[in-house]
Nucleic acid binder design. Structure first.
Length: 616
DNA sequence: TTAGGGTTAG
């Protein structure tokens, strides 16, 4: 450790302060500054302190100490934004109000620089009404004040107010437009956002990134990529934030071609690859596109092993590929390297355990999280435990988590997790109970109804199946149609249940499928006709089942790709049992590898078996 | 330097 005397304070200590990476480094410089009684450096110290995000208590302590030494007004003025920022970040409403009082006492409310910080802090604390009063009472509003009000209301979800402030603004600049476009996107109004964006005379990298992230947010990754291409041709150079969003769009789509191109673009660009979150975005993109080896290579080469997010992305990537053991090894390496795991790390770990059927390990890490790392398990962690037991068929243990172990009320997701395990193991009574709870909590979510009706159908309770259908009609719940996409020679083809394909395409695909199914039957494949929502004649049912979107995608792949190659499919819902065994047999009989990403995870079918080993 | 876009999550 360096002694404080080895840090002579230069004429301007700013560069030294900003270079501090740890609180103790900062403390040493602080000691020097106090000795040289250069109190004008206090605001810089405070700003760096907040950037290093220590405890809020420490920030307040330091600030109060300065306050009691009656600093110059200018010193106080420059310190206020940092202290307020800390209050906002640590949800300290009372402290913020106290500082508000001090501001009024010193008449700083006349100063937009100070009032704007106050405004932002109240929005961040969820105190919209106070924020609005501060805004209304401001004797002088500058561009920052107006823009803070717009973005404050956008963030808090009061879009109506954001629009009003935006419309009333005396002068709009780029920041105002970008905030408004962002608000429209967050409010799911892609069309209006696009319109406003197009009307802008000047667009900077933030404007383009706002559009890209907005489309990603609204589950429209294709449009996000189109905007990125437009951006490149318009001559605006992307930065790290832009690329992170583009990678998120590629990860959503699930086909790596575009992602590889973005990665190559990054290497050529001036963007620093190991900066901030780019590494974890790349890892995530490769894992979600099925290339977990590429993800691993990025993790080893691009990332420096210091950011918890990189580790989390890697663990989560291995987990969704069913590589639970490998995920645990990465976690152990993380512990050896003294990287502090966070709550996301444990969600990824627990998810990995549940996708690999590792019950003992899952329970061990759940305990480790609480005991060693003092991370209080949240709803999501309990959800993972429920999933862990449920997937393994241990429904009673899963129910015990809900009934006894967790201190909070289960959400719809927890009940749906129980429900889908009941479908898998044919447990009608538990399934009915879980479905009732899930529907209660999320009445518009069609999946609970569909799962319940599948349990009944499997048990041949056709009247109950009809009852569920009636309930759906009553509540106007629309079933989400299954959709599978497959990439053939660089072009994405989409198959949606109940939606017409291109002219002639349907006939070709269906006749191929028919041929495939009859060949598979000779190899022992028996279509499982129980997972159909509608009760119809046996022959008809088989027909309905055969058009699940992933089957069409497989048939299309067989038609267009050479034997021995890999068919890469992305599906929006969870794969059903029948399609799962269909893919298994296809991979053996036809000698194709099938890589299928469903709603939850990856299935790699090869030589008649699947990497998920039945855990999905 | 008080205002706008940023990864990992059952």
């Amino acid at each position: 450790m360096l002694s404080s005397s080895s840090f002579p304070v230069p004429p301007s200590p700013a560069p030294l302060i900003n270079r501090c990476q740890t609180i103790s480094e900062l403390n040493q410089i602080h000691a020097q500054i106090i000795k040289s009684s250069r109190s004008s450096s206090h605001p810089l110290i405070l700003r760096r302190l907040v950037a290093l995000s220590p405890s809020h208590g420490f920030t307040i302590h330091l600030y109060s100490r300065w306050l009691s030494s009656s600093p110059h007004l200018q010193t106080l003025r420059l310190s206020l934004p940092s202290v307020l920022k800390s209050c906002g970040r640590h949800s300290s409403v009372e402290q913020a109000k106290q500082i508000h009082g001090q501001i009024l006492k010193a008449h700083f409310q006349l100063d937009p620089y100070v009032s704007n910080s106050l405004l932002r802090t109240y929005f961040e604390l969820g105190e919209d009404e106070i924020a609005w009063r501060v805004f209304e009472k401001m004797p002088q509003r500058d561009a920052v004040s107006w823009n803070s009000a717009v973005s404050g209301f956008v963030r808090s979800g009061h879009f109506g107010f954001a629009r009003r402030v935006f419309d009333e603004m005396p002068q709009k600049d780029l920041v105002s437009y970008n905030s408004m476009v962002d608000g429209l996107m967050k409010w799911n109004r892609c069309d209006l956002a696009r319109e406003l964006f197009c009307s802008m005379e000047e667009k900077d990298v933030v404007s383009w990134t706002t559009m890209i992230s907005g489309y990603v947010l609204n589950f429209r990754p294709k449009e996000a990529l189109e905007v990125f291409r437009e951006m490149l041709s318009s001559g605006v150079e992307p930065d790290a934030a832009a690329v992170v969003n583009v990678l998120a769009a590629v990860a959503d789509l699930g086909f790596p071609e575009e992602g590889k191109w973005v990665h190559a673009y990054l290497r050529r660009s001036n963007i620093k690859l190991n900066s901030e979150v780019l590494g974890s975005a790349l890892i995530d993109m490769y894992s979600k596109c099925g290339l977990v080896t590429n993800a691993y290579n990025v993790f080893r080469s691009v990332c420096d092993g210091r950011r918890v997010g990189d580790w989390n992305s890697m663990i989560s990537g291995l987990s969704i590929h069913g590589l639970g053991q490998e995920a645990l090894e990465i976690f152990e390496e993380m512990e050896r390297n003294k990287i502090q795991p966070d709550e996301i790390t444990f969600i990824a770990i627990l998810n990995g355990c549940s996708h690999s059927g590792m019950i003992e390990e899952g329970l061990y890490y759940f305990k480790l999280m609480k005991d060693k790392y003092q991370i209080e398990p949240r709803l999501q962690h309990y959800g993972c435990l429920i999933d862990l037991f449920g997937r393994a068929g241990l429904i009673e243990e899963a129910m015990r988590i809900i009934g006894e172990a967790m201190p909070m009320e289960p959400d719809a997701m927890a009940w749906k997790s129980i429900l889908s395990s009941c479908v898998k193991y044919g447990l009608v009574t538990y399934g009915e109970h879980a479905a009732t709870k899930a529907i209660d909590l999320a009445p518009q979510d069609s999946s609970s109804y569909v799962l319940l009706s599948n349990i009944y159908a499997r048990n041949k309770q056709w009247e109950d199946v009809e009852r569920v259908r009636e309930l759906m009609r009553e509540k106007r719940v629309q079933k989400v149609p299954g959709c599978s996409t497959v990439m053939i020679h660089g072009k994405v083809h989409e198959f949606i249940v109940g939606k017409e394909m291109g002219v002639g395409c349907r006939e070709v695909v269906l006749s191929k499928l028919e041929e495939v199914i009859s060949r598979l039957k000779m190899e022992g494949y028996e279509p499982d006709v129980t997972q159909v929502l509608v009760h119809v004649g046996e022959g008809e049912k088989e027909g309905l089942l055969s058009i699940h979107s992933e089957k069409m995608a497989v048939a299309f792949g067989l038609l267009n790709l050479e034997e021995g190659s890999s068919i890469h499919i992305v599906k929006n819902l969870r794969v059903c049992c029948d399609c799962h065994s269909f893919c298994e047999v296809v991979s053996k009989v036809y000698n194709y590898e099938i890589v299928l990403r469903d709603q939850n995870r990856f299935h790699h079918f090869k030589g008649g078996s699947c990497s998920c080993k039945g855990y999905w």
